[in-house]
Amino acid sequence: MLMKKQELIHLHGLLAEVGNHFEEKTGEPITLDEYESLGVRPTSIHRSKTDHKAAVFALSNAITTEMRVTEREVVAPQAD
């Protein structure tokens, strides 16, 4: 099933909230270079469905990458 633009915008907003929540809980910022380079935010309703789809993929990739890094640090903390 294909998502409608409205659904992608909603998912985009939810992912942004997940990212914010993760940063608050871990105290670590998420590297969002690729996402930010797109210049598409959940509030950018005038942007195309394709733009929001690219933003959703970039944001979800950034969040999951940071989760993996954080998980590795918790499982096997680095020695100082």
Score class of each variant (00 low, 15 high):
4 K>W: 05
5 K>T: 04
7 E>Y: 04
7 E>Q: 14
9 I>M: 03
9 I>K: 00
10 H>I: 12
11 L>C: 10
11 L>E: 10
11 L>F: 09
12 H>T: 08
13 G>T: 01
14 L>R: 02
14 L>S: 05
16 A>Y: 13
17 E>Y: 02
18 V>P: 00
18 V>D: 04
19 G>F: 01
19 G>D: 01
21 H>K: 04
21 H>D: 06
21 H>Y: 13
23 E>G: 06
25 K>N: 00
25 K>C: 08
26 T>Q: 03
27 G>S: 02
27 G>R: 03
27 G>V: 01
28 E>T: 03
32 L>Y: 01
33 D>L: 09
35 Y>P: 08
37 S>W: 07
38 L>N: 06
39 G>D: 10
40 V>S: 07
41 R>T: 15
42 P>F: 09
42 P>S: 04
43 T>K: 05
43 T>A: 15
45 I>K: 13
45 I>C: 07
47 R>Y: 10
48 S>N: 08
51 D>Q: 13
52 H>P: 08
52 H>D: 08
52 H>Y: 07
53 K>H: 11
57 F>H: 14
58 A>H: 08
59 L>P: 03
60 S>K: 09
62 A>K: 05
63 I>S: 02
64 T>W: 06
65 T>Y: 12
66 E>F: 01
67 M>F: 05
68 R>L: 15
70 T>M: 13
70 T>D: 05
71 E>V: 14
72 R>A: 13
73 E>S: 15
74 V>L: 12
77 P>W: 11
77 P>N: 05
77 P>D: 04
78 Q>T: 04
79 A>C: 03
79 A>F: 10
80 D>P: 15
